[in-house]
């Protein structure tokens, strides 16, 4: 098992804030909008350096999505910032018609996604956003795994032409990816090559997958760990190649099982290489208040849950 070192816990939203600031410095067409959550989204640096390219819209997310769509008409590259719930469910029709169907180059940047928002509880812990966004034709959906990768992804989407949903979170989590590695949209990141089981994870669950891989190694199980940071377009080649090698797959994500990464992987395998698969995801349930770690444990998104899923799926392999 390849060794990964946590360079110090950091929040992915701060990676977004740094990436946005740098993207703004690199390209004067980058503009940003926020719905009364500048501090939470870490957008201060951008706002302070580029006040003329920053738009505070107030608590009015539908309007924010429409304004962002309009700003593209005139060559701007708008980044919207609010919580994941208010970036998707609240404004689905605005995104669908004014952004996705209209093919507008808007970057929908969503923080506080999933259970790890923690104590605020289920009203804010959206676990359906990836599904909502990946269903929209032409929408790119990205869930980076740590601070460094979120920053790199933010820079990458500024250079990409088309609507993007970028999902990140609030808690300080392990920061372990190489800060110099460029982010390639749609290209899975191979974290560990293995032979017995494939673990496909994204977002905060990638570090859990690495922890699980280490536990599995102590049991003599060799796991191949893939960071599927881009849910759409899905790197099907990487999934098929790995499933061919290991013969079984575990997916792990901080999202509903319905509509998430696991669904996308299952669809890919069903069409190309039917393979036993286990899902580490929230199973048709809302979240609740608690600390991020308590919630991940309670809703079955821990490294232990990934280990158990791996053991189970290995037992389902055709021999």
């Amino acid at each position: 098992m390849k060794k990964y070192t946590n360079s110090g816990n950091k929040d992915t939203r701060s990676g977004f804030g740094e990436g946005l600031h740098e993207a703004g410095q690199a390209n004067k067409n980058v503009v940003a909008l926020c719905a009364d959550l500048i501090g939470s989204l870490k957008m201060d640096a951008f706002k302070n350096e580029f006040p003329d390219r920053f738009f505070q819209v107030g608590i009015a997310e539908a309007n924010m999505m429409g304004i962002a769509a309009g700003l593209t008409i005139g060559g701007k590259i708008p980044f919207t910032g609010t919580f994941a719930n208010f970036s998707t469910g609240r404004v689905y029709d605005q995104i669908r018609q004014s952004i996705a169907y209209s093919g507008k180059n808007v970057k929908i940047c969503a923080s506080h996604a999933g259970l790890t928002l923690g104590e605020d509880g289920a009203t804010h812990q959206i676990l359906e956003d990836v599904g909502l966004m990946k269903m929209l034709p032409g929408m790119t959906v990205i869930c980076p795994c740590d601070f460094n990768q979120t920053k790199a992804a933010t820079l990458a989407i500024a250079d990409f032409d088309g609507p993007v949903y970028l999902r990140f979170g609030r808690p300080k989590v392990a920061n372990f990816t190489d800060p110099t590695e460029p982010f390639i949209i749609g290209k899975a990141q191979m974290l560990n090559e293995g032979t017995d089981v494939t673990i496909v994870a994204n977002g905060h669950l990638v570090w859990k997958a690495i922890e699980a891989g280490e536990l599995l190694a102590t049991m003599g199980i060799s796991s191949e760990i893939i960071n599927m940071h881009t849910v759409k377009p899905l790197d099907e080649e990487a999934i098929i190649a790995s499933a061919k090698k290991t013969g079984c797959v575990v997916t792990a994500e901080e999202h509903q099982r319905n509509g998430g990464l696991g669904d996308s992987v299952a669809q890919c395998l069903a069409l190309n290489l039917p393979t036993p698969q286990e899902f580490v995801a929230v199973n048709d349930s809302f979240g609740e208040s608690g600390t991020p770690e308590q919630l991940l444990e309670k809703y079955g998104l821990s490294s232990k849950a990934i280990v158990e899923a791996a053991q189970k799926v290995i037992s389902r392999k055709k021999t």
Partner: peptide
């Protein structure tokens, strides 16, 4: 909203 964005 879209028009406001274009105007901005």
């Amino acid at each position: 909203s879209v028009a406001i964005g274009a105007a901005l």
